Amino acid sequence: MKKNWLWPVMAAGLFISACGAETAEDPTDTATESAEETETASAVDSAAMELEVPFDGVMDHVHGMGYIEENGGLYFASHHGLKVHRDGKWTEIEDQYHDFMGFNATATGFVTSGHPDMQSGMQNPLGIKRSDDGGETFDDLGFEGETDFHEMAVGYNTNNLFVFNPQANSEMETGFHRSDDAGETWQQTAAEGLDGKVTYLAMHPDDSMMIAAASNQGIFLSEDGGESFSRITEGELGTAAFFSEDALYYATYSEEAKLVKRDLSGGEEEISLPEMTEDGVVYVAQHPENPEQLAIYTAKGHAWQTQDAGENWTQILNAGQVQ
Rank of each mutant, 00 (worst) to 15 (best):
L126Y: 14
M152D: 09
T147I: 09
D148E: 05
D148Y: 02
P116G: 05
T147A: 08
M152H: 03
Y156D: 10
S113E: 05
P116T: 00
Y97T: 13
T112W: 11
P116N: 00
A105H: 11
P125Q: 13
A105N: 14
H80E: 15
Q96F: 00
T147D: 08
F103K: 11
G109L: 04
F103I: 10
E94C: 10
V154S: 06
F103W: 10
V154R: 02
A105D: 13
D140F: 04
G88S: 12
E144Y: 01
D148P: 02
T112H: 04
P116H: 02
N124A: 14
E144W: 00
G109D: 03
I93L: 14
A107Y: 10
T91C: 03
G145C: 10
G134A: 11
D99G: 07
S120C: 07
Y97V: 09
V154A: 15
A153G: 15
H85D: 11
Y97P: 03
D87G: 03
Y75H: 14
D95R: 15
A105M: 08
Q119F: 04
G114C: 11
A107D: 15
S131D: 08
W90A: 14
S113I: 04
N71Y: 12
D95Q: 14
G121D: 01
T112P: 07
H79W: 01
G142V: 06
F110K: 06
G134Y: 01
M101Y: 08
G72D: 15
E70Y: 06
S113T: 05
Y156T: 11
F149W: 02
G109E: 02
G81V: 10
L82V: 10
T147N: 04
V111D: 14
G109H: 03
M152S: 03
E146H: 10
T108E: 14
Q96M: 07
S120Q: 06
G155K: 08
L141P: 00
H115T: 09
G155Q: 12
F100K: 06
P125C: 10
T106R: 02
G135V: 08
M118I: 12
E136F: 03
G134R: 05
I93T: 14
F76S: 12
L74N: 06
A153K: 07
F103G: 13
G114N: 11
G127E: 07
H79L: 03
R130Q: 13
S78F: 09
D95F: 03
G121F: 04
D148S: 02
G73W: 07
D139G: 01
K89H: 13
E151C: 09
K89L: 13
G134N: 12
F143E: 04
F149Q: 02
M152P: 01
G142W: 05
G145S: 11
P116Y: 05
F149D: 06
A107P: 05
